[in-house]
């Protein structure tokens, strides 16, 4: 606690995945860093590395990041084999160097999944997630068409539970940490969010069938209920939402005209350029 750590510094050995572009083969390269303050965030440590590489005439390491406050879902990184590093409920940008010890070797890899191809170094393409949302992760309501907000009461419990799922930041840690590279937690978060609200009810069958179909055609793996996704999820989305997704899917597949007719069971991505 408190400021006992101020002024402490670490010397580190980094093993970083470098890959020029998707077509090239990648490899690990080793770098040494000295005098890293324990107050730094993990990404600030990488900033220092990049400054050092620039001075040495080597190209800086490319990595995705944006808000640096844990909410945008842009940052990623497999740090010593753990998605977003060792802390639960934390994104890489909120991970601090006080979590590491002097002399430690840190292995940094990109998210690895067939559906998340590497673009460069530690940057991967997560547009599969956008295509999954396009396949039904919304409520079809025209702008200006909405009824008065309080006309449909929603119990506090339902709202809180929906929000528990809606907090997903779409970072992909669930896919990265799953031994099968399954996207079930991501898909479940959206299905569960909208399935628990009256606004989401009219399209629930189409939504779950469409989103699961898209997930499958993006070639994510299958869920085997190991719960690694839940442990890696920085937003704390629980695997109970996966169970709700399964339930929704069963209802849609066996209980709705859409499912029985076999519509929406496979979909192909639209959009993008």
């Amino acid at each position: 606690m408190s400021h006992s750590t101020t002024g402490k510094t670490l010397n580190l050995k980094l093993r970083v995945w470098r890959q020029k572009d998707n077509a090239s083969r990648g490899e690990f390269r080793d770098y040494a860093l000295v005098g890293i303050s324990t107050e730094m965030s993990f990404l600030e440590m990488l900033d220092i590395l990049n400054e050092q590489l620039l001075q040495q005439g080597e190209e800086p390491v490319n990595f995705d990041h944006d808000c640096r406050e844990g909410i945008c879902g842009t940052c990623s990184l497999m740090i010593n084999g753990q998605a977003h590093g060792p802390d639960n409920g934390t994104t890489t940008c909120q991970l601090h160097m006080r979590r590491f010890h002097d002399g430690q070797m840190i292995t940094i890899e990109p998210w690895r999944a067939k559906a998340f191809p590497v673009i460069r170094d530690l940057v991967v393409d997560r547009s599969a997630f956008d295509r999954i949302i396009q396949a039904g992760g919304y409520v079809s309501v025209r702008t200006g068409q909405a009824p008065e907000a309080n006309s449909v009461p929603i119990s506090k419990n339902d709202q809180e539970s929906a929000l528990d799922a809606a907090v997903c930041i779409g970072c992909g840690a669930c896919v990265a940490s799953c031994k099968n590279a399954s996207a079930m937690l991501f898909v479940a978060a959206k299905v569960s969010h909208l399935a628990q609200l009256p606004q989401g009810a009219p399209e629930r069958a189409a939504r779950v069938l469409g989103m699961v179909g898209q997930m499958d055609s993006e070639e994510f793996g299958n869920c085997t209920n190991t719960s690694e996704c839940e442990a890696a999820c920085p937003a704390g989305v629980s695997v109970t939402h996966i169970a709700r997704l399964n339930r929704e899917y069963a209802k849609a597949l066996y209980g709705s005209p859409l499912g029985l007719k076999g519509e929406l069971l496979t979909s192909s991505g639209t959009g993008g350029d």
Binding site: R15, G26, F28, M78, N80, G81, Q82, A83, P86, N88, T107, E109, R112, A113, K114, A115, F116, P117, S177, K179, N180, A181, S182, E219, F220, G221, N222, T224, S227, E228, A231, A232
Partner: peptide, 27 residues
């Protein structure tokens, strides 16, 4: 079937290192 799909889903390159984030579990 699922096992072969799951292996393919990881992609061509696997992690060099993996650790569980579930307390107490060792992969």
């Amino acid at each position: 079937v699922t096992a072969s799909e799951n292996r393919a889903a990881r992609g061509a390159t696997d992690y060099a290192m993996r650790q569980s984030k579930i307390p107490g579990r060792v992969i």
